[in-house]
């Protein structure tokens, strides 16, 4: 079990200035004290709603945003303190695929040029690079006739395949997938998910998969981290999380998406009340307490710590032990 990516006590605060001349400064705690490690070869999922900080984590690892504090290690390299050159070499070992396929490719150049660019940057001779582009296009089932087109001439699925091709063209070990299928139609989503599985097997890739779509995360991921308002609230292997979720928020998330089966209509429901509060002013104590039906006085004042409940099942909740949430799963 070798950790490929290690985040230790990572915090990311964004500053919002308002008031006259930006005198008043408020902090948005996008990621607040998150530690996790991604093991080589696994698919690590991060789930959460908007504002949970999951996308910020995706950008912290290749240092597209700088952390406020904490450390990020990729294959032993300290990403936060790496020099320009070290960082560049580390980034070549990662790929990243974004949510919106339509704006993931430079609209002014052909698809082939977009896929070829990383090779060019890595200093590969043009001819070799062109061959590699063809090869990788075939890998992602992108017809060669598509290569000479511009991104807007492609369907959403093709655009996303092209983005994946660009992400893996340098043969990275690690690919960050930031909601790669949420903008796609169901029938196309299945193609892309299968493609991701095939590529992983073939090149023994490590994936970080970020999504709000629980069934998709369950299908793809080995371990899942649940985030809420910048905090990691639970982390477990997929099977364990589905069998016995410990945190009420995880349970709510798992049960939120209605299953595509009318017979499940009378299933037990667990619906959180209210909306996620503002990130600039998160609640004291446990951040979920205003929405949590199990909240007690302690939850309002004391922030729960992330504890290990056996074989790497982490959760941060005061009520674990009092509650049995493993029903209806």
């Amino acid at each position: 079990m070798e950790a490929l990516v290690e985040l230790e006590r990572v915090k990311k605060h964004f500053v919002i200035r308002d008031g006259i001349l930006g005198r008043r400064r408020r902090f948005v705690h996008a990621v607040d004290d998150v530690s996790l490690s991604i093991v080589r070869g696994e698919t690590f999922g991060i789930v959460g709603e908007s504002g949970s900080g999951k996308t910020t984590i995706a950008r912290i690892i290749p240092r597209l945003v700088n952390v406020t504090s904490g450390s990020v290690k990729f294959s032993g390299i300290d990403i936060c303190r790496a020099s320009g050159r070290e960082l560049m070499l580390a980034r070549r070992r990662m790929g990243i695929v974004f949510q919106d396929p339509a704006s993931s490719l430079n609209p002014r150049v052909t698809v082939a040029a977009s896929i070829q660019r990383p090779l060019q940057l890595a200093g590969l001779p043009a001819k070799e690079a062109r061959d590699r582009v063809r090869e990788v296009a075939e890998l992602v089932n992108l017809g060669t006739e598509v290569l000479d087109k511009f991104p807007h001439e492609l369907s959403g699925g093709q655009q996303q395949r092209a983005s994946i091709a660009r992400a893996i063209v340098l043969r990275p070990e690690f690919v960050i997938l930031d909601e790669p299928t949420s903008a796609l139609d169901v029938s196309v989503q299945a193609q892309v998910l299968n493609l991701l599985l095939d590529l992983q097997q073939r090149f023994s890739l490590t994936y970080l998969f970020i999504s709000h779509n629980l069934p998709v995360v369950r299908y793809l991921c080995d371990r899942i981290a649940v985030m809420y308002l910048g905090k990691l609230v639970e982390l477990a292997s997929t099977g364990v999380l589905y069998r016995e979720p410990l945190h009420p928020y995880s349970l709510a998330l798992l049960m939120a998406a209605p299953p595509p089966d009318p017979k499940m209509r009378n299933r037990r429901r667990f619906i959180l009340t209210g909306d996620p509060p503002s990130l600039t002013n998160p609640p004291q104590g446990c951040r979920l307490h205003p929405r949590c039906q199990f909240a007690v006085e302690r939850c309002r004042v004391e922030e729960p710590e992330l504890r290990d409940y056996g074989s790497g099942h982490l959760a941060a909740c005061h009520r674990i032990g009092d509650l049995d949430l493993g029903f209806a799963m």
């Binding site: 949510q99 919106d100 704006s103 660019r117 990383p118 983005s163 992400a167």
Partner: peptide, 13 residues
């Protein structure tokens, strides 16, 4: 802030 620019940064441009 478009993804294709972020992707470019991630590629080391």
């Amino acid at each position: 802030n478009m993804p294709f620019v972020e992707a470019a940064r991630a590629l080391g441009e």
